[in-house]
Simulated scan of single mutants.
Amino acid sequence: MSTPHLTDPLGIAYAEWSEEFVANPEMSLRMMRWVFEDWQRVTAEPEDVTYKSTEFGGVPGILVTPLAADPGQVLVFLHGGGFALGSSASHRKLAGHVASACGATGFVADFRRAPEHPYPAQLDDTTAVFDALVESGIDSADIAFVGDSAGANIAIATALRMRRRGTAGPGLVLTISPWLDMENSGETIETNNDTDFLITREGLQGNIDRYLSGGASPRDPLVNPLYADFSGFPPLYITAADVESLYADAARLHTLAAEAGVDVTFDVAAGQQHVFPLQAGRWPAADEAIATMAAWYRGRRNADAHRRTATSASA
Rank of each mutant, 00 (worst) to 15 (best):
S140C: 07
E190Y: 12
A104G: 03
L123E: 04
F111A: 01
S136C: 03
R164E: 14
Q205S: 08
V223C: 03
G232R: 12
T309P: 00
A84W: 05
D125Y: 03
V243C: 14
V35Q: 13
E19S: 12
T175W: 01
G281E: 13
E26K: 13
A168I: 00
A305L: 15
L133T: 06
Y297W: 10
F77Y: 15
R163G: 14
E55R: 11
H79F: 10
L236P: 05
W179N: 05
T127V: 00
G80T: 08
A228C: 11
L174K: 04
H117D: 03
L180D: 05
G103I: 08
A121R: 06
A99M: 05
T7G: 04
S177I: 02
V64I: 15
T7R: 09
T50K: 08
S136R: 14
A152L: 01
D181S: 01
T292V: 13
P218L: 04
Q272Y: 05
G214I: 02
F276P: 03
V64N: 06
L75C: 08
S217R: 04
W296F: 15
L67W: 11
V59G: 04
I199H: 03
F107C: 03
R161N: 10
L67A: 14
R210K: 13
D131P: 00
A286S: 15
A313M: 14
T43I: 07
M182T: 05
D110A: 05
F111E: 04
R30F: 10
I189S: 01
A295K: 13
A114W: 04
F276H: 13
H254A: 12
A285H: 10
A84M: 02
D139N: 13
G147V: 07
L75Q: 12
P46A: 07
S90Q: 12
A269V: 07
S217T: 01
D124P: 00
E45A: 14
M32V: 01
Y14S: 10
R301C: 07
P235T: 05
F111C: 06
F233K: 04
D125R: 02
N193P: 00
S88G: 14
R30P: 00
F77E: 10
E20F: 11
P118S: 03
S100H: 11
D48G: 06
K52C: 09
A109T: 05
M182E: 09
I12Y: 10
M182A: 05
S2F: 09
D242W: 07
G80V: 02
T54I: 09
R252D: 04
I154C: 00
A270H: 13
A240Y: 01
G261K: 12
A251L: 08
A216R: 07
E135I: 05
A269Q: 15
I156H: 01
V173K: 03
R165D: 12
P284S: 09
